[in-house]
Amino acid sequence: MDWLNILSNSASSIISPATMAYALAALGLAVHFGYAGLLNMGVAGFMALGAYGYAISILTFGFPWWLAMLVGLVASAGFAFVLGIPTLRLRGDYLAIVTIAAAEVVRLLFLTTAFDPVTGSADGLSGYHGSFRDANPLPDGNYGFGPWVYSSDQWWVRIVGVIALALAVVLVWRLMASPWGRVLKGIREDEDAVRALGKNVFSYKMQALVLGGVIAGAGGIVYALPSAVNSGVYVTSLTFFVYTALLLGGAATVFGPLIGSLIFWVLQTLLSNLLPAMVQAGILPFMSQIQAGTLRFILVGVALMLLVVFRPQGIFGNKKELTFVR
């Protein structure tokens, strides 16, 4: 087995755009689920709108990259708003059903051939990098050390990703430390009690849904920055992966989603390299290399189950919270 290659790939994923995209999506979900108690199962839909909003703006309307990003964020916000009007009156489990359906509707709209000239249907969209790469201030060439050697374009994607993540972290951190965050946490605990204290619960839930939606949309944009957009990515299992990352770190924390995504992706990369290599080396004789590649998804599922059962507050969650499992 080529251990050096396996470890190097795993280490490289620490600052991969996918990790940052997951971290952003998980942070948005932390606002929804961790702080406001909104069981949003449609994260993939928010990410899809961010990504497609960005790509379509450039390819169809010829917008510059920054304006396209803004369109992606506005699209996610709009989706959150439209979704929220009828659904925020629903209780937790019903909201989950509606959001999962809404995300599928979004994905199928991007998949259908009816809008092929704009969405690219099953082929997805690509070739929208020109404007973004032109704005790259880094000179051409390769930079970095060890496993983290990337071209200037790859670095540019990572820099923008880190900036977006930092902005989102600071925003959520400030909000949750404020009286606004206090109201939101109160709503998570018992919205009738908060209503009885004179707070407009619907409005707060809507604000939280839009805020988390925009952050998840930013995750979708970062996900789309380096390569291409394809509707096959924004499936329900993406939502579950983001939930795994979130719960790994701790749902009602600011840094939990970051660390959770990091661990999630490093492990994913490690397993996707290690398992086939083990098959090749004859350690797992009962399966093929392709089977070994899918084994990691099974392991993710098992990990999610173990996590929820044995450490529901995640790595960063308050230990005291565990004493009072609801």
């Binding site: 909000l175 404020s178 009286p179 606004w180 206090r182 109201v183 946490k185 109160g186 998570r188 605990e189 018992d190 009738d192 009690a193 908060v194 009885a196 204290l197 004179g198 707070k199 604000q207 009602a252 919270e321 009072f324 609801r326």
Partner: peptide, 24 residues
Amino acid sequence: KALGLLTVVENMKLGAKGQKGEKF
């Protein structure tokens, strides 16, 4: 309806009306 995972003092502060910091 005590808000379980808020501290007692946070519960209390939530009750105050017209808080400026409660606007987004």
